[in-house]
């Protein structure tokens, strides 16, 4: 039989074979040989080309995600820092404004006080001057009135009694009336 040769050709006459074609030992060398070649080839292609490609895509995605998360974290910290800076700047500006307003108020107050004091002094000075002048006028007037009263009294006495009265006597009399009247 052809099977005795152990060749693949023996399967060309399947009718001659009992049992499964899988048990035809003659095909074994060819099967193993071509399996080694094809499996080896597939292994080489997957190992060198396809798997690094897939691993690269997975790795790139992981890196991208981690990188993005890192960037987000950095940006978040930056934002928090900026907020803190803004708040401290705001607080110091507010403090400065309050300080400035207080200083201004104090300055204005002192100016007002000074001006008020100056005005008071001026007013007091002119009031004193006026009083002094009033007093002088009054004194002058009192003298004038007394003199007029003396001369009037002397004239009245002269007319009534027909005798002259000296100015001194008239004055004394007026002074006496004055003190009595007072």
């Amino acid at each position: 039989m052809a099977a005795a040769e152990g060749t693949v050709e023996s399967t060309a006459e399947p009718a001659e074979h009992a049992g499964l074609p899988q048990m035809d030992v003659g095909t074994f060398p060819s099967q193993v040989f071509w399996l080694a070649i094809t499996f080896g080839l597939l292994f080489f292609v997957l190992w060198r080309k396809t798997l690094p490609m897939i691993a690269g895509a997975i790795g790139a995605r992981r890196e991208q995600i981690e990188g993005d998360l890192g960037t987000a974290e950095t940006l978040r910290k930056d934002a928090a820092g900026a907020l803190a800076g803004y708040e401290s700047a705001l607080a110091s500006a507010r403090k400065g404004a309050v300080q400035l307003a207080n200083d201004n108020r104090k300055g204005i107050q002192t100016e007002i006080d000074q001006m008020k004091a100056a005005a008071d002094a001026t007013a007091q000075a002119s009031a004193a001057e006026a009083e002094r002048r009033i007093a002088a006028e009054r004194a002058k007037a009192v003298v004038g009135v007394r003199a007029a009263a003396s001369s009037a009294a002397a004239d009245i006495v002269e007319r009534l009694l027909g005798m002259p009265v000296s100015a001194d006597e008239a004055d004394r009399a007026v002074a006496a009336v004055e003190t009595k009247g007072a």
């Binding site: 060749t7 693949v8 060398p29 071509w34 399996l35 499996f39 597939l42 292609v45 080309k49 396809t50």
Partner: peptide, 23 residues
């Protein structure tokens, strides 16, 4: 006997389909 058989052909097809599809 290392003849290229229909079995070898299908091994080649399997390898080619697998490698090409995955790549």
């Amino acid at each position: 006997d290392l003849s290229f058989t229909n079995a070898s052909l299908w091994m080649c097809i399997v390898t080619a389909v697998c490698a090409i599809f995955l790549t």
